[in-house]
């Protein structure tokens, strides 16, 4: 049985999966537990992240691994118990109002989910009040804001102000990412951290919610 766990982990980490969904279903049929398979995929994504940070893998490799991971999770979904996912905490993610770029945001979502976070992805072009509502509804501990367009970077400040206005800011961490984000943007709009890529984002949220 354990050989399937190793195989799932290896093909995902080596970017060699032909059909991750089929492999996961085969593993389930062979008697592997869904939670164990999810754990194996999570370990593989940690390895993918490590290779990315060391310069062996690139953005397209992270995205490919993320797509494979999503296929695997879809196959596992009917067999997962409520407590199998999201144990590390809840992060609300979105691309801010006025911007619709989502590659980075989607990748952060996949990486966070594979690292054990519950991810509430609000999509793109999201108004500040929707972020506030989602934080309340999901008792989120952190928010991740993505912005690519230089002209829309002010939307980050609007979200921060809305969270302050709702009395949520003090109990919440906010990370920002995207092409136009700099340390100055983080400081100017009152966020807590900037992630340059999805792997760094996972490290930031893990540091806050360990």
């Amino acid at each position: 049985m354990g050989e399937y766990l190793e195989r799932v982990k290896r093909v995902l980490a080596e970017l060699e999966a032909d059909d991750m969904g089929a492999l996961v279903r085969e593993a389930l049929d062979a008697g592997e537990e869904a939670a164990d398979l999810l754990g194996a995929m999570g370990e593989a994504m940690v390895e993918v992240g490590r290779r990315f940070e060391e310069g062996e893998y690139f953005l397209a490799d992270l995205v490919l691994a993320g797509e494979e991971m999503k296929e695997g999770i879809a196959a596992l979904e009917p067999f997962l118990a409520a407590g199998d996912r999201g144990a590390k905490g809840t992060v609300v993610l979105c691309t801010v109002k006025g911007d619709i770029h989502d590659i980075g945001k989607n990748l952060v979502g996949t990486m966070l989910a594979s690292a054990g976070f519950n991810v509430v992805d609000l999509g793109v072009d999201v108004a500040p009040e929707k972020v506030v509502d989602a934080v309340k509804a999901n008792s989120a501990q952190a928010v991740g804001l993505s912005v690519l367009l230089t002209t829309m970077v002010g939307s980050v400040g609007e979200v921060v102000e809305s969270l302050k206005g709702a009395g949520l800011r003090d109990s919440l961490k906010i990370a920002v990412g995207g092409a136009c984000v700099t340390d100055e943007v983080v400081e100017r709009y009152g966020a807590d951290a900037m992630g340059r890529d999805a792997v760094e984002a996972v490290r930031i949220f893990s540091g806050w919610m360990a």
Partner: peptide, 12 residues
């Protein structure tokens, strides 16, 4: 490329 490096491996 994007903020922290090439989007695809230079080899590819």
């Amino acid at each position: 490329a994007y903020k922290s490096g090439p989007m695809l491996s230079p080899r590819l």
